[in-house]
Design a protein around this nucleic acid. Structure first.
Lengths: 109, 109
DNA sequence: GATATTAATCGTAATATTGCGATATAGAAA
DNA sequence: TTTCTATATCGCAATATTACGATTAATATC
C-alpha cells in the first residue's frame, strides 16, 4: 500500500512522526547541520557542500520548510534559510519527553 | 530513484538518520510509547492496542529491533519486547547534541 | 501425538520517496 | 530590453515503504 494509516493514532503521534520522518534522511541532517554551522543563513552553497543536484537540494529544503523546521527569506537574488526556532524547540521538547519517559537504567527483559 | 546516496555524508549522519527514520512512523511511535507505558515488556497486545494486522505490527517491531531501539526475548509462547537501553540513550544523546547545537533564541533570518 | 496459540516470514498491491535533467520564474546586472 | 544568476517546479525512472492475507515455525496444552 505505501499509505500510512493515521486513524489508529493520536494527533500528537501523527504530527510528531511527520516531523521526525523529515529528519530521517542524511541529506536533510546534513542540510540542517550546515545551516546551524554557518549560523548565518545558507542558500545554494548547500549544492556544492553536499553532493546533490540543485533540484534535489531544493526539494529537501522544501520538505524541511513544510514541516516547519526551517524558514526562508529572500536575500536579494538568492534564498536564505535558517532554523525555525519555534518549531525546532517544540520538536526538541517533544523528543525529550519521549526519550525521558523510558526509564532505561538497565534493560528490562 | 528511491535510493538514498550515502557517499556524500559522514558515517555519523548516515547512522543517525537511519535510526531517526525508523522513529518517523506513527505506528512505531505508538509501539514504543506502549512498550514504555506498560514498562514491563509487551508482545502481541500491540495488535489489539494499535489497529494494525499482526504481520504489520511484527514488521514494525522488526525494524525497531534492527536499528537497536528495542530488544526482544522469548517469554514462553510469546515474544517480549522492551526498550534497548544502550541504543536508546545513545540516540537520545545524539539528538540532544543536534538540537542543542542550534542556538535558537530568535529566528536568524 | 494432535491441536491451539503466538509470532515471523513470504508474496503482493498500492503508494511514497529519492534523485535527476529540463524547464520555468523572478530579480539583478548589463 | 536582454541576459545572467539563483531557485523552484515538473516529469520521470528506480527503488523503498506500508499494509495485508496466507503460510510457516515453534512452543503449549490437551
Amino acid at each position: 500500500m505505501g499509505l500510512t494509516k493515521t486513524d489508529n493514532y493520536t494527533e500528537r503521534q501523527v504530527e510528531l512522526s511527520k516531523m521526525i520522518k523529515v529528519l530521517g534522511h542524511p541529506a536533510r541532517i546534513a542540510i540542517l547541520e550546515s545551516i546551524i554551522k554557518t549560523d548565518a543563513c545558507v542558500c545554494g552553497d548547500l549544492v556544492t557542500e553536499i553532493g546533490l543536484a540543485q533540484s534535489t537540494i531544493s526539494q529537501h529544503l522544501k520538505e524541511l520548510k513544510t514541516v516547519g523546521l526551517i524558514q526562508g527569506t529572500i536575500e536579494g537574488t538568492s534564498m536564505c534559510y535558517c532554523i525555525d526556532a519555534k518549531n525546532w524547540n517544540k520538536l526538541k521538547d517533544e523528543l525529550n519527553q519521549l526519550f525521558n519517559s523510558a526509564k532505561c537504567e538497565g534493560d528490562c527483559c
